[in-house]
Design a protein around this nucleic acid. Structure first.
Lengths: 341, 341
DNA sequence: GACGGTTCCGTAAACGTTTTTGGTGCCTGT
DNA sequence: ACAGGCACCAAAAACGTTTACGGAACCGTC
């Protein structure tokens, strides 16, 4: 005899009553409830989730899918650790648990997601690293699984998302560089079809136009989102015949590689090439010269993600009357020395 | 009508037969099996995990617990992502899924683990960042949950673990520095009671003794495992009246902070202070002067963890006749310029 | 032609919960 | 004394699977 049945037998009451007592129903006497709770604590009873899920049709867990294959993820897990913490802090208040679902490098993300959806392992999902056309979004809407995307996408249909302000980062980067006298400004964009690259590029183009600067296609530099990509970026820039005098970056680790490339050429960030990096992180804070980049609170971002997800789950929506959240997450410019002329 | 019942109805056969066909049982004709598989694929049928778990008493998932609170985790670049990938590659071969369980900053790890065990969300567990006395180990053995620890511990009882070679890293670091003529060698150790600190320290002490060097307690420097800890470490070293000429590090990001601290003092790693770092990572590869540190394959480590776990699960043990794995994971020294005299 | 063996499949129980339904006993007001 | 209401609880159904059991059909053998 196990589980709730055992508990009921010990107390000499029915399992239904035990269940009601544990779940805080009203139709059970205070005395009985107290006895049940005491006995449950004494034997360390925890409801079996499988039985519960089967009956209620939910799992009290939500998933956060991360793609190990996407270089933008596999290179920096300080990002997700921070976000997880924020998401958790929202979810635990509602007795929901967070599980991270790491999609293997060698599996198609959509296939992986479909498997997870089918298994009914979670009640809701957060997906990240959205691509320009992201079939996961279709999958989730079709399956009617509540979700929120960390990242916009060009996929049609209305769905909740929160995205970093790639547009604003590009725009403000250009503004700042133009104000400092630069006119040949390069932009690093990712070499794959992750959506943030397009947003970043659009912001870059719009800013150039607003300043009346010509758009030189050779200044749009496609490199992988990794520290090696930054190294390559540095090489590409240095080997151009008509070098840009400044560059804006779309990913945090690029700065590392470009710093190295400049150092090897005997050049210095800020003096020989103005650099505006992306996200401030533990590494960027310790680079010298100090990197000009943008700050955001990972924990707050996680909280916002958690709340948006809850807002789109019928069972919790009343506590979070946010409607469908489509939100651009602001980032604060932190001036450093890497973009001094 | 949903799930397997729907499938059976469409095919006009019993649900038992459908289940047997899907699960590869022998007592079903090849023709029937083919029809079932086709129909299942056509309607995108995926077995409901709750029903399955309830019946079979397992979940076909294993968990990887990470503590967001431990600074050694929340800061570590790339570490877990790489390990996850290796674990996955082993598990998927056996149709097991990996879920990462991030323990919130503000929750006690043991309490969190107990909740997860109680929910019966996973069949097995990998825990990391083991402490000197780690109650999670008692919890897991008592609950008879198969697990493997990434990290040794002083907790009694036999249990499977894999640990990085902190002892060897400390020993070889000292050897190398002594060979280069150093005699005052400092060691950074974590300021909390994570077990790796004790192992590292023991290796350091043993190496000193073997070389006939005195043990100076003031050279054992306790700092948080973060880039800020490294900054503080650098400060502490520079402000000593009888400065060490070399230091060995126990955590990868420490190097970042100490580099910065030296730079601010107009000093240079390798010339003014010999530094041997810990794990080679994307960041260390781009530091200058290049950091002398140790290399390991995260993916292989993940594979080893996955295999050890399977070896300790009765249902899979026959495929992995490893016995109880207690293994020290070797790390390869990568010479750089940071420890040149 | 009875019989044992094999191959295939249907039936039903079981897993641990939650929730609906119904019922018992007690109290209250008339 | 009796109808009605209330507070509490027992019983049983339901969730979607897997699997033990038994039986039907077919085959070959003496």
């Amino acid at each position: 005899m196990k589980g709730i049945r055992r508990l009921a037998q010990d107390l000499n009451i029915s399992i239904g009553t035990v269940s009601r007592a544990l779940n805080g129903r009203t139709d059970v006497s205070e005395d009985t409830r107290r006895r049940v709770l005491e006995a449950a604590a004494a034997m360390g009873y925890v409801p079996n989730q499988a039985g519960r899920s089967l009956r209620q049709g939910n799992t009290n867990a939500i998933g956060f899918m991360i793609e190990l294959g996407a270089d933008i993820n596999s290179n920096s897990d300080t990002f997700f650790m921070g976000v997880f913490d924020g998401v958790q802090s929202v979810l635990t208040r509602h007795h929901l648990d967070l599980v991270a679902l790491p999609c293997p490098t060698d599996e198609d993300p959509s296939a992986y997601l479909q498997r997870m959806i089918g298994r009914r392992l979670v009640d809701g999902l957060i997906i990240s690293a959205t691509h320009r056309k992201d079939s996961r979004i279709d999958l989730l809407t079709k399956a009617r699984i509540p979700f929120v995307a960390l990242g916009r996408s060009m996929t049609t249909g209305d769905y909740p998302w929160i995205d970093l302000d790639f547009d604003g980062v590009a725009r403000r980067g250009v503004d700042r560089l133009v104000a400092a006298g630069h006119s040949r400004i390069a932009a690093a964009v990712p070499s794959n079809d992750i959506n943030l690259g397009f947003v970043f590029l659009d912001g870059y183009k719009a800013a150039l136009k607003r300043h009346g600067l010509p758009l030189d296609p050779s200044l749009i530099m496609r490199v992988p989102s990794s520290e090696l990509g930054g190294y390559q970026l540095g090489h590409d820039i240095l080997s151009m015949k008509d070098r840009p005098t400044a560059v804006i970056l779309n990913y945090e680790l690029l700065a590392l590689g470009i710093y190295r490339q400049l150092a090897e050429a005997g050049l210095q960030p800020g003096r020989d090439l103005a650099i505006i990096g992306f996200r401030e992180n533990p590494v960027s804070r310790f680079m010298s010269p100090r990197l000009t980049c943008f700050r955001l609170s990972l924990r707050d971002l996680g909280i916002a993600l958690g709340e948006s997800l809850l807002a789109s789950m019928p069972a919790y929506a009343d506590a979070y009357p946010l409607g469908m959240v489509q939100r651009i997450w602001p980032m604060e410019l932190i001036p450093g020395e890497s973009d001094r002329v």
